[in-house]
Design a protein around this nucleic acid. Structure first.
Lengths: 107, 107
DNA sequence: TTGACATATACCGATATGGGTATATGTTGT
DNA sequence: ACAACATATACCCATATCGGTATATGTCAA
């Protein structure tokens, strides 16, 4: 899953699909990459559930399934506290509470 | 960057470092992996700025630098709207506004 | 200074991966 | 039925990556 997204071209494909669903050739036209390569990347993305496909006439239309990114989002979110100012503020509050408790215990 | 985090063992190392800074051998003891392999993973993590190192006596203590994950968090966040209920609610509001405008234009 | 320790690096082999070219599969229009 | 089209797959090659083993580098302790 992480691996699927680690590939720059695959991220490009996902970014592109955020605009809306697209048949393979549209994607090929945008990316500077051969059609077989795009099909392979799409296969990988499909296998991990990041995109879905729908047959329409002789073309296959791919659309984004962003829900597949939730695991990554969840994992990264655990680290957000290490940089986010929002969490720094929260830390400050918690620390203050601890200090207050310590003072209360003393007295 | 994405690539550094795509490796399961490297994610394990990061998860482990969330508990606090650790010398290499501590990490080796936790992961079931040889010391050279751990050193190599740490090197990769250091190169992309996800960990920092500090020399203490004859050991090198590594600590997490979660800030390096912000780019990933930012990228994934763009997709959050595609699954989050929070954003679904926002979409509903926006849609309602559009409907309202449409009705106003008619009259 | 010497030996034990902590870590990094060099090297090897197996496997995976990405792009390229050719071709197979399936669909439409005539 | 046939030709053009859209996509997928098979195969090849070059390169990257991971784990493993051996070894180099640097530090402490006696």
């Amino acid at each position: 899953m992480f691996n699927a997204v680690a590939e720059p071209r695959r991220r490009e494909i996902l970014d592109l699909l955020m605009e809306g669903e697209r048949p393979v050739n549209d994607i090929v036209a945008r990316l500077e990459l051969g059609q077989p390569q795009v099909s392979k990347h799409l296969k990988v993305l499909r296998e991990v559930g990041l995109v879905d496909a729908r047959d329409q006439g002789r073309m296959r239309v791919y659309r984004l399934n962003g829900h597949g990114l939730k695991p990554i989002h969840d994992w990264v979110s655990n680290y957000e506290r290490t940089w986010s100012e929002r969490f720094d503020a929260l830390d400050a509050v918690l620390e203050e509470l601890q200090d207050k408790e310590a003072r209360d215990d003393e007295s």
